[in-house]
Design a protein around this nucleic acid. Sequence first.
RNA 1: GGAGAGGUGGCCGAGCGGCCGAAGGCGGCGGCUUGCUAAGCCGUUGAGGGGAGCAUAUCCCCUCCGAGGGUUCGAAUCCCUCCCUCUCCGCCA
Length: 423
Amino acid sequence: MLDVSYLRKKRHVLEEALRKRGYSLAILDELTEIDARRREIITKANELRAKKNEISKKIGELRRRGEDASHLMEEAKKYDELLSELKEKEKEYDRKFWDLWGYVPNIPHESVPVGPDESANVVVREWGERREFRFTPRPHWDIAELLGILDWKSATEMSGSRFVTYRGLGARLERALINYFLDTHTKNGYTEIFPPILVKPEALYASGHLPKFHEEMYYINEDNLYLIPTAEASLANLHRGQVIPEDKLPLYYVAYTPCFRREAGSHGRDVRGIIRMHQFNKVELFKYTKPEESYEEHEKMVQDAERILQALGIPYRVVLLSTGDMGFAAAKTYDIEVWAPGLGRWLEASSVSNVEDFQARRANVKLKRKNGKTEYVHMLNGSGLATPRVFIAILENFQQEDGSVVIPEVLRPYMGVDAIRPE
RNA sequence: GGAGAGGUGGCCGAGCGGCCGAAGGCGGCGGCUUGCUAAGCCGUUGAGGGGAGCAUAUCCCCUCCGAGGGUUCGAAUCCCUCCCUCUCCGCCA
């Protein structure tokens, strides 16, 4: 959520932000109208309340002296009728306003390329050499089939499409990735967290996933809880309502969690393999920083994710997302895409965003300066990394002609083998 | 799941219908002291919103004592619902 003063005092900034993102500006007119009405009502109600409070105070004084106050009590009652109506309206407009304000996205940082969609994204750098194959590289689902490490039949039978069962060294590889990621990041100063995976709606409002993305998440009506779509949702709530002394910042967190997404809008897309799953594993990085340091920390976070791919030897590129492709809460986002030779395309394995104070405002996380002043912290999140796409990249990049897959050096201690071979 | 206790400012903690945005302590900030010295003394110190204002200066008002309702002229204080914490019992990986 943005600071409301943008609507009143810096409307041009908002307009520009919405235009850059390709959003309609209509919402601003609606907001302005509701806001004007809302303030009108608040002002009126406050005046009435002030008068009524005054009378009540007098009654108190009279009563204490043991004098009669019935005439004043009559007068006070008159205000009740006037107020009760206004109070209803006040609530109504307040709710309307804040609900709608929740649909206003974050303002893109000035360094973000402007464009309608991913076509305007900018490749910032590319790492590693894409391997030349002497044979036609297979897509990961064929390799997995040969190796017997992914079992689609059991998963679809027990859970449906977009679920998979990892088997044998496949399950082992998944676990190895999670552990390797966690071990690497904790060595780099991130504190490991294992958060709840079911969270309350309030938590998702704070992270910015609600109200907009209800449809994208699994919701358990019985208990009013959501399955998290990413650990970001949990980590953004780690310090809810807290005031953090500035010398404690920045805070670095890393968390492994499964993630759950309904993928409601992507029927028919990426249906084969493990590119797009309802349930997948991800190791998430998260930072709480001072506002003036967040962009520097953003760059560092991208590099922390990149280092993992470098150690694994997977070719990748870093893409700066354009205004039209960026997420709702983000002010600036880099994607890290791994090369998948079997598919012949780049796959997003990480998305690293600076949301500035967008989440902090709703989660109410502040920092206290040395001079006693408080302000909202900046929050950053990034995958470090999502396992399925790294899993794919390993299979496809390190496949041999006979279908076996060579395990990267750094994973061997976790795997216990140097290759996965056909059964 | 059952029985009970409780949720108050950055933290601890008093208050249990009006004089309470809230005693006291700790912490923070400012100052004084420098023979009680890893101290003492004095002062100061919550958040959000609305209005006036060039103003992130200042002033006025409203709201906030877990959240949401209710009773009352008036609620931190009384009633209801929900959330959370703790204790005991039950169940259980």
